[in-house]
Design a protein around this nucleic acid. Structure first.
Lengths: 339, 339
DNA sequence: CAATTTCTGAGGTACGTAAATCAGAAATCT
DNA sequence: AGATTTCTGATTTACGTACCTCAGAAATTG
């Protein structure tokens, strides 16, 4: 039988109230008595029954998610997943609030983060922008004792407790590995289309991509990065111009969103380059099937949201997380293994 | 505030005991009264608080896992993950028992399954062998009202409630897609090394691989399948013989275990073929790094075990499962994205 | 109409923990 | 020494559900 607080009280020769004070760090216990209780706890191997504790506290976990109001499929899907979690909130004892902020807007994000500090939830998750202001705001959150999880895009050295997202350097390296093998030995130019170098995930993908291409496939040259701000129209014109000035582009790595524009630009061309993109959406899926895109690297927004919630709960309770369970995987989709 | 049984009793104008009888399907309630209670339940939108219910029942979920006592890294890792779940059992209210059976042994598996029927746990998971006897035994389990989950290798038409494993046809198709692109346009022979055609996962991988190779890469010819019974020594000799009789082998798809033998055979040869294997282990990882293996398709045993437990719990409680959460993904590892 | 059988309500205890109240003991201060 | 403050223990209630007992009401049977 699992030991309970009653057993501790019996063994330590104290009352339930004293055990409760020790367990919950409340004052009013002599050092000697506290020692006796703690000894009883460790000899019995007592672990608090979280379900019973939450029931007694009638606890609900108040969490806040800050997500950019981007209109690309991925961010829309991410918001959708958070709403799905809200729908399950009664069963999971959570009370999740969403704050939407304009995309790539440091000021708005900082403002939202400070609002979170005010409302003092049991935890917060947000899609980071990598600027000093945001980092400072994240530190304020952390200093207020609120567990913080970054979502999709990380923010190191900000005191965040956890990052729920893929390893973007590895993603970039993978893209490079596939690109190199798919072009096997050809000498060619590679175009890279990014959203913004302001977000860390895009920067890291580029970093990983360049590193592997440089070391393992020296015959492939990367052209200056095109910034499309995750906007289909901007992406299309940027790419069209690149095609015009570099007719020998044989590969494209699209490491951001706004792939509808990329697809239109590629389809308007005679020779098909090898195209590797991120995020499986309706348009990239169609492009995979018709051969416009060769491979899609994907992160599962649902997994990221559920993982963020699990981690926030664990942090709120001061519990460890199962690291292997919370590692978000990079899915690689070819047209042959579309789900 | 979330509605409770007390609210139902008040609204329906009955006592707590009657509400309890209706909720738990106990006898002793007139049809008319039952109707009134059920109406109150639906108008209030009552959902039973599982944590409180489990606490009151002091319920633990007794689950049985049947796993083959294979000595390859993957199965050892799988057993390890189940033991990890046992270590967490007190916090998760589970009581998991492991039954080990000899690998590829229908009779032993059937015997174990029937033993499970006797012990009547709240759920069972097993690595299936695809034979009529096993299918019949699985049906007996299901008929006994015990939720059944197949693990790693599926068994359709057996009444199993869920399959916790990857889509092996998609895995085979992916391997073929990578193989075809890596060999881009070359005319060559492909060797396939399997464990046993008795397990469904191996059969399905071959099926997917053959289908895509045949339709998309007609220049690549598949040689007759080599069976290595997941044994390194057998795999090595089988492959060495294949090399001897077919000097033009340019690609190898190893869809089972026992890759240590495969690696030795490949390294003993002058020309390096394109090699795609399954399961990331110490040896396949080393082979990826030194270039002996080009890609590894992996399934995460930890995810499979945790998913199986979540699903068994849900089934035991008659709850729905989040399908997207329980889809086990195929990880693709190149040397560039090793974790 | 009496004797049953079948419903239903009232009330309680339990699960393991949290948290509040109150009273007595010990230590500190005046 | 008496008053005050600080500890400590005992006891109780609560969280939401399960499950048990018992008694009385209603319906059914002979």
């Amino acid at each position: 039988m699992k030991p309970t607080v009653h057993d501790i009280a019996k063994i330590a020769g104290v009352s339930l109230a004293t055990v409760d004070r020790v367990l919950n760090g409340r004052p009013g216990v002599r050092e000697i008595t506290r020692g006796r209780v703690e000894e009883a706890i460790s000899t019995l191997g007592y672990v608090r029954d979280l379900a019973a504790a939450n029931l007694a506290k009638s606890r609900t976990y108040a969490f806040t998610f800050i997500i950019p109001a981007n209109d690309n499929s991925f961010m829309i899907g991410l918001a959708e997943e958070v709403r799905g979690a809200i729908a399950r909130s009664s069963a999971e004892r959570t009370d999740i609030r969403i704050i939407e902020v304009p995309p790539f807007d440091t000021e708005a994000l900082v403002c939202a983060l400070d609002e979170v500090v005010e409302s003092r939830p049991a935890g917060a998750a947000f899609v980071a922008i990598d600027t000093p202001e945001v980092r400072a705001a994240a530190k304020r959150l952390q200093a207020a004792g609120i567990p913080v999880v970054t979502l999709v895009s990380d923010l190191p050295d900000s005191g965040r407790d956890h990052y729920a997202g893929i390893d973007n350097i590895a993603a970039g390296r993978t893209a490079a590995g596939l690109m190199g093998r798919f072009l096997s030995g050809r000498k060619a130019k590679i175009a890279v289309l990014a959203g913004s170098m302001l977000v860390r995930d895009h920067r890291e993908r580029l970093e990983g991509f360049s590193a592997v291409l440089g070391s393992s496939f020296p015959d492939l040259d990367i052209l200056p990065v095109l910034e499309g701000r995750d906007d289909p129209a901007l992406a299309e014109t940027a790419l069209a111009e690149a095609f015009a000035s570099h007719p020998d582009i044989a590969g494209i790595y699209s490491l951001g969103a706004g792939n509808r524009g990329l697809i239109r630009a590629v389809q308007a061309r005679r020779e098909r380059p090898v195209v590797i993109a991120h995020e499986l959406t309706a348009s990239t899926r169609a492009a995979l099937i018709d051969g416009t895109i060769d491979a899609v690297l994907n992160q599962d927004a649902g997994h990221e949201v559920r993982s963020a919630i699990r981690v926030l709960k664990a942090k709120a309770d001061g519990l460890p997380v199962i690291a292997a369970q919370e590692r978000i995987r990079i899915d690689i989709f070819l047209k042959d293994n579309l789900p």
